[in-house]
């Protein structure tokens, strides 16, 4: 499915060129809502400023709960036994593609248990995966880590709206009564859809990386050679890549995932999970994160 890979590449090129930092996005959204509120409702500009100021500090306890979930989650994950377990987990994948797949699965499955778990574990796992498998397309790996928060959490056990309306005494009880969880998150519709999303996107994320041209003679030769080699990493893979800081930190305007020899690139379908299945030139590219 090189088609999706091509689109992903074009979109990445666009976003890296034009999208501002996340903080600037928050500011821009503020202005947009401000303008929309004045244009579409009866509120005046001054009123909107007041609303903004009122809202600014209104959700403080939730903000602290969220901050704590990251801090306390990190404390657990950084404790020696859990740290060892996570490191062992990061060694499971046998190639860049299975790395991305496992990250996506972990993130989404944990998101279904609790969103706080998904956030913390994903944040800790991306660097471990990248250290274990430096040839991975780092940006795709990080995207995979975001899928729990992006695609599954509100269908799982920490789904805030369904949990809220199942709680006796919730603020809309008079309007809608109590809706038991059996009719929401444990309904067949929700369960089936959630597991379809989990399965589909665990697999689909793989097709986002560009696969190098199979017909290219150099790739074929190297993939053949590697298939018959031991798992010794090629010179370019090892010292710097394994010990150095997590790879592509500052990708240039052009993503490292582009051909020739993609970062994650499986030369042929059969060898995709094998370490060392892509050319050494692409390996160093993945490590530096620039071309």
């Amino acid at each position: 499915m090189d088609f999706l890979g091509r689109i992903a590449l074009a979109l990445t090129r666009w976003s890296e060129r034009w999208v501002p930092s996340s903080f600037v996005i928050a500011i821009l959204l503020t202005f947009l809502v401000f303008v929309l509120a004045i244009a579409l409702t009866s509120a005046t500009a001054l009123q909107c400023v007041t609303f903004w100021g009122d809202g600014f500090w209104e959700l403080l306890s939730f903000a602290m709960q969220m901050t704590l979930i990251m801090v306390s989650g990190y404390v657990v994950a950084a404790s020696p036994p859990v740290d060892r377990a996570l490191t062992r987990l990061a060694r499971l994948p046998r190639g860049p593609r299975s790395c991305v797949m496992l990250m996506a699965f972990l993130s989404m499955a944990l998101g279904m248990l609790h969103w706080g778990l998904s956030i913390v574990v994903s944040a800790l796992m991306v660097r471990r995966f990248a250290r274990h498998e430096p040839r991975v397309d780092y940006r795709l790996l990080v995207t995979a880590g975001y899928l729990g928060m992006g695609l599954t959490w509100h269908a799982g056990l920490s789904a805030s709206a369904p949990l809220l309306v199942a709680t006796p005494g919730h603020f809309l009880e008079r309007q809608m009564g109590i809706v038991p969880l059996g009719q929401t998150i444990f309904s067949p519709f929700n369960l089936i859809l959630a597991f379809i999303v989990l399965g589909v996107f665990t697999l689909l994320i793989l097709s986002f990386t560009r696969v190098p041209d199979e017909r290219s003679p150099s790739t074929q030769r190297s993939s053949w050679r590697r298939r018959h080699e031991t798992e010794t990493p090629s010179p370019a893979t090892s010292p710097r890549a394994r010990l150095g800081p997590p790879p592509p930190v500052r990708p240039g305007p052009r993503p490292p995932a582009s051909p020739p020899g993609s970062t994650t690139g499986p030369p042929s379908a059969g060898s995709w999970a094998r370490p060392g299945s892509c050319g050494s030139s692409s390996t160093s590219m993945a490590t530096d994160g620039r071309q």
């Binding site: 999706l4 689109i7 992903a8 590449l9 074009a10 979109l11 990445t12 090129r13 666009w14 976003s15 890296e16 034009w18 999208v19 501002p20 930092s21 996340s22 996005i25 928050a26 990251m70 956030i119 913390v120 994903s122 944040a123 800790l124 991306v126 660097r127 780092y138 940006r139 795709l140 990080v142 995207t143 880590g145 975001y146 899928l147 928060m149 992006g150 695609l151 959490w153 996107f201 994320i205 986002f208 997590p246 930190v249 990708p251 993503p255």
Partner: peptide, 29 residues
Amino acid sequence: DVIQPFWALPLLKAARLDFRHILGYAMLV
């Protein structure tokens, strides 16, 4: 959520990336 940067902030901090680096893939998702 997947194209909204807010919940990705801890992940991006750990990964040392900015949102624009993952948004291309995220938009496709």
